[in-house]
Write a protein that binds this DNA or RNA. Structure first.
Lengths: 200, 200, 200, 200
DNA sequence: TATGAATGAGGGTTCATTCAT
DNA sequence: CATGAATGAACCCTCATTCAT
């Protein structure tokens, strides 16, 4: 039905608008300091509506974080796929994409760190699952590399853990890193360091 | 005067009690969700007293973070000094101490991550300074090692940044890492990886 | 639009309800001793709403005082205008109206005296301006009288100052004056005294 | 006993110091905004001591007001007595003294107005009694004048009421009056006006 | 659907007052 | 007498949430 579809689209748009406003506000002032009224105002609609789209403030936070993590899940595999077959090239592409997403969303990344515990256990589990899902493509690349002999045998999970930490580090310590690096050179420097450790 | 000293000691103890209770509560429920009344109750004293020792809730948070960072500043140099002259041994000692402090203080570490941004600019600056101070001993060890030829030439600050991130990683992702590592093996695994990258 | 008007009316009514409750309470117990919860309770609505209509407790006090002063501004000129052309009659009408308003609003008048200084400089200025505005009609009457020869030349401002003080005196010392006077006889006695001084 | 006397003197001095500090503070910030700690600090002693000299904060306020009113009670009769036998001269002397005390203690006068109601009924009664006592000398002067034919027959209490109101008016509306008058000319102008009304 | 007026529990903070030293 | 650390009741204010329109 055309009407139903139109309505659904409208709903989708509304949701996106609210999430977008919430991301901005949560980043600017932190989840707790930002009020639902402010979110409503910035999104250009009424408080009541927020409660129709998201049951409560915490659910909105969850949606916001999921939205951010979603970008990683969507973009990293694409970039890896587009980079050919060489494990090193694939790793480089994946990591660079990861850091790029973080850079475009620096405050959002911090938000995930700051407010992860704010969520109730349910939400926390959802986030953890998404984080693992997000890291999976990088994990696969390392595994492939190890299988093909391009990388030595190491604890994949530790390496992935480090990759992700170092990527997040770009947001976490941006105030210091930005003096010596830009996104691209940071990613390269980290990759060089890692490759020295895991190349045969 | 004995009395003056006794009073000072009492004051010190009180401060420590409050900070300790605050760390627990802030980490359990988050800074915003924890109430000053709860902190008072857990510390076994009255709300009013908290406000006599720390001007307000945010100052308490600041004190808590400073207190945690202080432990790094105090313990790492000692461990390094006690480990002899070999750069690798010194690095190992310093990093292990760092990870150990984090492990003993996992809640506090997470707190620093979560709530560091909650502070007003002033407090944030203070924390940043302390963080740099805290990292200095590790930084010196790397520099010595590079000077003596024990390590190849790399960007010291990047390496130190990674060391600290990976140490914090132990607290940040403890829920996952604890399945494969204990503190000690985690530190060793990370050191091995790093040494592969920076040894000639 | 009917709805908009209805809403505005409702808003006006709410404001008036809150102000009315506040006048009562502030006068009964003093501004500081009265709590916002008490005001809300007496007005039959919630605390939160008070803060939606008036930003904070002090602003409520300001509104209360402005409201009271407004009655003078509205009523005195009307009474004067309705009293003909004779300066003495006009003075009498104006002053009696002034005292009448005070009598109907004795609590409010005392409040102005007691709590006027409680306001921050901004509010104080606003009040001062209103006070001057309030006195203007009486001032004009005296000036007319002097111009027409009905009154001798005196310092208008001093005379007006005394008129207002003596009117306020009815509220300030009501506990004593009420033994000998009622509103009307008080106003007359004061007028007689004044006229002896300023009639040629 | 010399020691007992010395102790009493010390007590008297302490009391005076506290009252003096309290007057300053209460005037500067109002009774409610001033804290007992601030009073203690300004008086150069500990909070606890205030509670030994005055049972509680309200009693301190009462003492402060009594102290101020005491000055009227002490000075006006002296000035009247020193001004000879002429009723007009005596009235002038008494009123000028009254206004002078107010001028020297402008904030204290306002304090009496603002905080009179703050006191519990007991204290309020005490103040009222003192006010009447304070006005008595002026009342007597008017009565004498009426008896001697220097003044016409009027309601003494109304006249005294006006005298005192106008004197207080100097403190209450000082911000406006100070543009046209100083203490002395204000007293004279008021006296002139009054004398036109009550001289035969 | 959409609004926003209304609610009220709860939090940070203050400060008069006490009491062990 | 004198101190000042300690208490805790109480206040102002915020803000997530609801619901009549």
């Amino acid at each position: 039905m055309a009407t139903a579809t139109a309505r659904q689209q409208r709903t989708q748009r509304r949701r996106a608008e609210i999430i977008s406003a919430a991301i901005e506000l949560f980043q600017e002032r932190g989840f707790h300091a930002a009020t639902t009224h402010q979110v409503a105002e910035r999104a250009g609609l009424s408080v009541g509506l927020i409660y129709q789209y998201f049951g409560n403030k915490e659910d909105l936070l969850r949606a916001v974080i999921v939205d951010i993590l979603g970008e990683f899940r969507d973009r990293i595999p694409v970039e890896i796929a587009a980079s050919g077959a060489d494990p090193v090239a694939r790793l480089r592409a994946g990591y660079r994409a990861y850091v790029a997403v973080i850079d475009e969303n620096r405050d959002g990344t911090l938000l995930t760190y700051r407010e992860g515990l704010t969520l109730a256990p349910d939400g926390r589990e959802e986030i953890k699952k998404l984080e693992i899902e997000t890291a999976a493509p990088l994990r696969d690349v390392i595994l492939e590399g190890m299988a093909s002999g391009a990388f030595v045998d190491v604890d994949v999970d530790l390496v992935v853990h480090n990759l992700i930490l170092s990527a997040h580090g770009w947001a976490l310590k941006h105030w210091r890193l930005a003096k010596s690096y830009d996104v691209s050179s940071y990613a390269d420097a980290q990759l060089d360091l890692l490759l020295r450790a895991i190349r045969p």
